[in-house]
């Protein structure tokens, strides 16, 4: 009875596979980031930080490996923020009215869309990890296969909850907006601070206090925390900064993402319940 969101999911996935250009560009984009930005930046950063002594007891991590976690986070963020856009198209040229007039509970529309967005994020994350391996990213240093499997599951759980939050956010905005251009504007406005005021590309330890506080509230920072914890371990040294995560830190980051997703769910539900499409 309550599984209709799988229908919405089914259709979203048909469209995902059917639009070849969208499919390939979404798969290629993170790989290209890694290949060009990642390799170029890591060549520079590694030169700057080579002279900094590594504190005893920590594992040194090169820049490419450090930023690969950030790439996973960034890709999840972009994919999720754009995930709600299909709703806007549906509203103007698609099946939104059919779905709203059907007996399916309206929350299932956003759940189906979110599930498909999470699936897309997962596919991309796996591609980045596989491609990173080829480029020389050293994830899971010295891990046993069992620990690698657990780590990957951990990363995907973090990515899933994070993506859900931003997919619900973008669905919410899409239901309230009239045009795809509006959503595009909001996304462009948001991605810059979200991406740069976070620990995705560089340590936040060197930020001015104001930006440090801001980045602590940024869901992206918490996602990156989770990914690095599972991919690199609890103690490592990168870009001249020492990282040490306790399980409590990671649990806190995860809780933060859960709360973020829950708040986004409540707000999105409101938008869907009130949605009027004529």
């Amino acid at each position: 009875m309550a599984w209709e969101f799988l229908t919405v999911y089914w259709r979203e996935m048909i469209r995902f596979v059917r639009f070849r250009t969208q499919l390939f560009s979404s798969l290629l984009q993170p790989a290209l980031w890694m290949a060009f930005f990642g390799v170029a930046m890591s060549a520079n950063f590694n030169r700057f930080t080579a002279t900094i002594p590594v504190p005893p007891g920590t594992i040194p991590v090169d820049y490419l490996t450090f930023m690969a976690a950030g790439m996973i986070a960034m890709t999840s963020l972009f994919t999720s923020l754009f995930g709600g856009m299909s709703l806007l198209f549906d509203k103007n040229w698609g099946l939104m009215r059919e779905m709203l007039a059907s007996p399916m509970p309206r929350t299932h529309i956003m759940l189906g869309v979110s599930l498909s967005g999470i699936t897309k994020s997962f596919i991309q994350v796996v591609i980045i990890m596989a491609f990173g391996l080829i480029l020389g990213v050293e994830f899971f240093p010295g891990y046993s296969p069992a620990r690698i499997a657990v780590s990957i599951l951990g990363i995907l759980t973090f990515v899933g909850v994070f993506s859900l939050g931003f997919l619900l956010f973008s669905s919410n905005i899409s239901m309230r907006l009239e045009s795809p251009e509006g959503l595009q504007g909001i996304i462009t406005l948001l991605t810059m601070p979200l991406f740069f005021v976070s620990n995705a590309l560089y340590p936040i330890q060197a930020f001015p206090p104001f930006l440090q506080t801001l980045s602590a509230y940024n869901p992206l920072t918490h996602l990156v925390n989770g990914i690095r914890y599972f991919a690199l371990g609890s103690e490592f040294f990168a870009v001249g900064a020492e990282y040490s995560y306790t399980p409590a830190d990671i649990l806190l980051s995860f809780s933060y993402l859960l709360v973020f997703a829950a708040v986004m769910y409540i707000l999105a539900r409101q938008a869907f319940q009130r949605a009027v499409v004529t």
Binding site: M1, E4, L6, W10, R11, E98
Partner: peptide
């Protein structure tokens, strides 16, 4: 066919 299938599934 998919259009019909989608609709039928919406109505369980």
């Amino acid at each position: 066919w998919e259009t019909m299938e989608f609709h039928g599934r919406l109505y369980s």
